[in-house]
């Protein structure tokens, strides 16, 4: 294993860990459920993506990399589905949505 590859993996892992923690902190700093879903999506995309990318560098061209790609693909398919289902369920359940303007009043956005 070459040194440069190890360094690249380390950088990607640390960057991914950073985004994970940022998402976790956002989960606590945002004040409302709908905003927290955005913090969770940071960890699901940047955090997971960078970390798995770093592991792929170690795997090289092998089955391991293929499996890492599968994990990433499943995560990228499932996380928007879950996020959408959660938000729609919360919205349908009548959980208050704090917004600054209604979409109905907004002429240019509708077109």
């Amino acid at each position: 294993m070459s040194g440069a590859l190890d360094i690249a993996t380390a950088v990607l892992l640390v960057a991914g860990g950073f985004f994970c923690i940022v998402g976790g902190v956002g989960l606590h700093r945002f004040s409302e459920f709908y905003q927290r879903t955005h913090a969770a999506s940071v960890t699901d995309t940047a955090g997971a993506g960078l970390m798995l990318l770093g592991l792929m560098l170690q795997g090289g061209l092998s089955m391991v990399t293929l499996k890492l790609l599968l994990v990433l693909a499943f995560l990228l398919f499932s996380s928007p589905a879950i996020a959408h289902a959660l938000v729609k369920a919360a919205h349908g359940h009548g959980l208050e949505l704090e917004i600054e303007d209604e979409p109905g009043r907004d002429g240019d956005a509708a077109g």
């Binding site: 940022v22 902190v25 945002f30 999506s41 949505l97 704090e98 979409p103 956005a109």
Partner: peptide, 18 residues
């Protein structure tokens, strides 16, 4: 979004759009 989360005072203007 990272910048938003880490900013000392979180200022959000959430909105709905079609």
């Amino acid at each position: 979004v990272t910048k938003l989360i880490l900013s000392p005072k979180i200022e959000l203007h959430p909105r709905l759009r079609r």
